[in-house]
């Protein structure tokens, strides 16, 4: 055995436990999920003959399509808004802040508190006797508490923006940090004003961070279960609520599996499209 081959063999051997764990906890379950989506269930009996029944059931019920589209729209809005709100902060930390480390730490700390309780906090803010209503009443702007704040898709979007904020700030910060300052100086020397310089140099060069942020927020946001359950109300339910229901009350695992597979397929496709689109837009800038 040559040294290179021996080195590689040792490497593969050392990787085996980690890869075995990933195979058992991720690849095998996802493979089984895919298989399950082609099976059917009659009471407690699972029929393993392959059919498209579950997918046909999804297609035939416009309710599923509605919740699917709503989930994707809510997640897309939340990720885009989170990116737009976070970009100036990332820019400030990367180019202007003195205590970068402190700023990054401050952005991440709220992220490490219980996700459930953070979502619940939004219920307290937007609720009937919540922060906003108390404020409005105290200022005598309304006579009775307003009820349109909570239990709707807007509340879900707002809560998701808050919940995934660090996923927007950090990747954008990393991509901005990598930009060679001499490129910015060159743009200024060649006569670009700060706004032009930003759109022609900084923004295109930070596009990888923007794309990473979008993917890191869009995927978990589409599949978020807690937020729509607590602040979404009937009109704010998302796909995860439907999937969970198939494994709970509705007890139709093949349908739940098909919904999950459709979700993965849809988010992957949209992420690839968004990333390609963003890259193309960035490369078009002259």
């Amino acid at each position: 055995m040559t040294p290179a081959v021996a080195h590689a063999a040792r490497g593969y051997l050392l990787l085996t436990p980690a890869m075995a764990v990933l195979a058992f906890t991720m690849a095998a379950p996802l493979g089984l999920l895919l298989a399950y989506s082609f099976w059917t269930q009659h009471g407690l009996v699972v029929d393993t003959r392959l059919t498209l029944a579950a997918y046909a059931a999804i297609l035939s019920d416009p309710g599923f399509a509605l919740v699917f589209l709503r989930s994707l729209a809510i997640a897309a809005m939340a990720s885009l808004a989170a990116i737009v709100l976070a970009y100036p902060v990332a820019w400030f930390i990367a180019f202007r802040a003195r205590a970068k480390f402190l700023w990054l730490l401050l952005v991440t700390i709220p992220f490490w508190t219980s996700y459930l309780l953070r979502v619940f906090a939004w219920k307290v803010i937007l609720g009937y006797n919540g922060v906003i209503n108390s404020g409005l009443m105290a200022l005598h702007l309304v006579a009775t508490p307003v009820t349109f704040l909570l239990y709707n898709p807007v509340a879900v979007v707002l809560t998701l923006i808050h919940g995934y904020a660090p996923f927007a700030v950090l990747p954008i910060y990393v991509s901005l940090e990598k930009i060679d300052p001499s490129l910015l100086e060159a743009a200024a020397d060649l006569g670009d004003n700060p706004a032009k310089r930003f759109f022609r140099v900084t923004l295109p060069l930070s596009m990888s961070g923007v794309i990473a942020a979008f993917v890191l927020i869009f995927i978990p946001a589409t599949g978020d279960y807690v937020t729509p359950s607590l602040v979404g109300g009937a009109n704010g339910l998302m796909i995860a609520n439907l999937i969970q229901a198939q494994f709970g009350r509705a007890d139709n695992w093949p349908l739940g599996a098909a919904l999950a597979i459709t979700t993965i397929a849809a988010v992957s496709l949209l992420c690839v499209l968004a990333a390609t689109g963003a890259r193309r837009a960035a490369s078009r800038i002259r």
Binding site: A18, L22, M26, I219, P220, G223, A240, I243, Q244
Partner: peptide, 23 residues
Amino acid sequence: FAGFSNLPLFIPDIVLGISLLIL
């Protein structure tokens, strides 16, 4: 290998949860 070990980041928790339950 790097991609494979990052893959769970790209699977929504709900999907990971139910597929592990099925397994």
